[in-house]
Design a protein around this nucleic acid. Sequence first.
DNA 1: GTCTATACAACGATAGAC
DNA 2: GTCTATCGTTGTATAGAC
Lengths: 208, 208
Amino acid sequence: MKDWAGAAPDETSAPRRRGRRPGGGDTRAALLDAARAVFAERGYDGATVRAIAERAGVDPAMVNHWFGGKEPLFVAALDLPVDPATALNEVLPGDPEHLAERILSRFLQTWDATGAAQLSTLIQSIASHDAAAGLLREFITRVLVVKVLAAVAPDRPELRATLCGTQMFGLAFVRYVLKVEPLASADHETIIAAVAPNLQRYLTGPLP
Amino acid sequence: MKDWAGAAPDETSAPRRRGRRPGGGDTRAALLDAARAVFAERGYDGATVRAIAERAGVDPAMVNHWFGGKEPLFVAALDLPVDPATALNEVLPGDPEHLAERILSRFLQTWDATGAAQLSTLIQSIASHDAAAGLLREFITRVLVVKVLAAVAPDRPELRATLCGTQMFGLAFVRYVLKVEPLASADHETIIAAVAPNLQRYLTGPLP
DNA sequence: GTCTATACAACGATAGAC
DNA sequence: GTCTATCGTTGTATAGAC
């Protein structure tokens, strides 16, 4: 950390070789591992790109080169089966009063296609490892609050985001992990019609 | 949480002695272990009291003596910090249109007092072991559908029950396991005011 | 030769010390 | 207010793979 931050760079230590590494194409994997460790230890804001790159033994610019920035690296470290940014960009445009329907439709399509197995393992790691829980907490806060709620919420975006999180997470768990009938086998239309009004109230409806 | 995969003591083919056993005070624990195993293997309806007692190596009458019946044994096997029957009897009476508020109030009091640790371990075992997931599925179906929804729901009690399950489980997970702010630190009044209308819609509101 | 992974320097923004 | 340190990000030159 303090090697190259403020000290004079004209030390006698040998500079790292520039250019492409001989055999190892493991920079991307090293960054992912380092990112999971640092994000888990310090959270999203506390984790710096420089610290992650240092742990991985590479230049901070590699984060941008391989992932496009700090946040895409964070999403990649979560190892989700979908890219939230892409999904949100497809879902956000349109009437804000029908946003819940679009979110639910996309949500069901994604997890029905991916299958419950992957979601089950994801939830397991979330429930058992504090690190994973911290990562998801960061994810909920950042993605839901900053991107979704800031665009449509009239007030209290943080509270609305967590409330949306309760409904979406509970739906995922009961449908895909517990597989409680008749919800586990219900078609998308039924679920959207049942859940969308509640989710929409959390998004734009009146709150105390 | 108990060890759901723990093997119950094998049944012995020797004839059991009648009357009080000499030193054995482990009949209750043996029944609980056997109950978890058999409930997990066969579900609530498929598990018979006789099979549970046989695996525990005791007389079926012991189920009635120690637990008061099959269902209290099932609840005891779930190792919940509260007795659902008692809690429901305190919550059900009153205006059905305000049932959600009473459920949420009781729910928050229970888990805030017990602490998040116990709920976290409970959810972990649910997410990781299929057996525990099956038990909770049975619990949701039986308790919510038969006892709560049958009393207040105008139609589709099964669907309403699972929808209520999504909201309650999601609330528990986000507040007590993930501890996402501001929901994790919100007072009961705020949460009830925010969630009760949605839960009430699942209970008695219009469904598609 | 081209292509690409890499290192280094530097920019604008931001937060805190003074 | 200024100053400083550090952040995320970007530009660019270079070394090695192709």
